[in-house]
Design a protein around this nucleic acid. Structure first.
Lengths: 226, 226
DNA sequence: GAGTGTGAACGTCTTCACAGCA
DNA sequence: TGCTGTGAAGACGTTCACACTC
């Protein structure tokens, strides 16, 4: 396959979803390695650092192209560049957070965003009492500003941090304003048009999954002692 | 298979992990349905409410046993009971949060926990300046209290909401104190013994995955207009 | 007729194992 | 010799489609 051919294939969703979800992990491990001064890294070492099987690491990285050196490993700096480019992190992304309750506050102040090229461009809330409040250097604006904010910021990522009851409405507003990537923290199932990407983080669900496993461990122990 | 046989099989990790991860979703939809007074629900309706394919709903629920009625659907109350029991939610779970920064604050105040049988039993922080501070009705305690807290609370779930640099240490302390289920919010890869269940929620990773898709959508559009 | 429960087909992801290259 | 890149095999998850039951 030609260089251009591979490039084109790459841009067409050629990378399996499961791989894409691990790329940020590699990226974090690689930047940590770069900080310690390592010039190269083997798939085994990267596997160790990320908790991923080394064959998987190699297969994942091979989707970016053949950037490894047999007998040596991968050049750390190189890989950082390639993964960043693949993830679209060479440009900064604006993030719009709707809902400035406990969670919205925490997200607005979360250092992990800024450190990876994400910049919170606006905080919005439907509650007039909250509008005007300053959080992390930004004034809270009314949700009615949404369309303007998104137009100013260009394409950006929307974060829904409202109560479940307001989530779908807010989501619809985000979509109407032109946002095509949404991260939902509200414990609600949201519906979006097919061109919009939606991911969710559900804290209660995570705890319930852990509870299931804890529960089963307790049951298993009882079986043994019975 | 006998009734007892199926029961035993069920307790032995017979339920696929992918199914377990969806059970909390069904549970939430079902409690909402119960509130509206619906007595029964079909797999199609439940699929609609949760955004899951209906065949998947049926297969997931069939792992709990044969609780559906052909031609009718599932009894809502019944299903709530069966899923709750399967997830181990018939007892309350204690949650210990370590790290009372922005995120820890938000988690401590998160209503979604209490509403599903999870109770925050302690907030801990390594920073002496934070110890004693009151958050959501609980006083922040020093991490050295961890062992005592866990002993008092019985089996519980640990939440790591510290900076990445402290996460592994805190995780080790949790494990040493006897916690066998840990939810990690720190952007770090944690290592735990095999008997400990570890899940992670990584906000920056979620954004990066969205960025990838947004990036590809932008690229695709450019291809079309080119 | 309506809707569950489930074998079978299909697709995706993971893991193995090794050829091939530095 | 060491490590990547990758076919092939296997495990897992999803979807289809329909027999069976209420």
């Amino acid at each position: 396959m030609s260089e251009q051919g591979r490039d084109a294939a790459r841009r067409r969703g050629d990378i399996p979803a499961a791989s894409v979800e691990r790329l940020p992990l590699y990226l974090r491990a690689l930047t940590a390695l770069a900080d310690t001064g390592s010039a190269t890294v083997s798939s085994d070492a990267l596997a160790e650092a990320t908790g991923v099987n080394s064959a998987k690491v190699r297969k994942d990285l091979s989707h970016l192209g053949s950037y490894g050196i047999r007998g040596v490993g991968y050049e750390v700096e190189d890989l950082v560049v390639h993964i960043s480019r693949e993830l679209g992190l060479t440009r900064g992304w604006g993030v719009v957070i709707v809902g400035v309750g406990n969670l919205g506050h925490a997200l607005a102040g979360y250092g992990g965003f800024a450190s990876r090229g994400f910049r919170v461009v606006a905080l919005l809330d439907a509650d007039p009492a909250r509008v005007g409040e300053h959080v992390g250097g930004l004034a809270v604006r009314p949700v009615s500003d949404l369309e303007g904010v998104v137009r100013e910021a260009g394409s950006c990522i929307g974060v829904v941090a409202t109560p479940a009851s307001a989530a779908q409405d807010v989501c619809d507003l985000l979509v109407a304003a032109g946002v095509r990537s949404i991260l939902n923290f509200a414990p609600a199932v949201l519906t979006v048009p097919p061109e919009v990407d939606l991911r969710k983080v559900d804290l209660a669900v995570e705890l319930q999954i852990l509870a299931f496993h804890e529960h089963r461990k307790a049951a298993a122990q009882q079986d043994v002692s019975a």
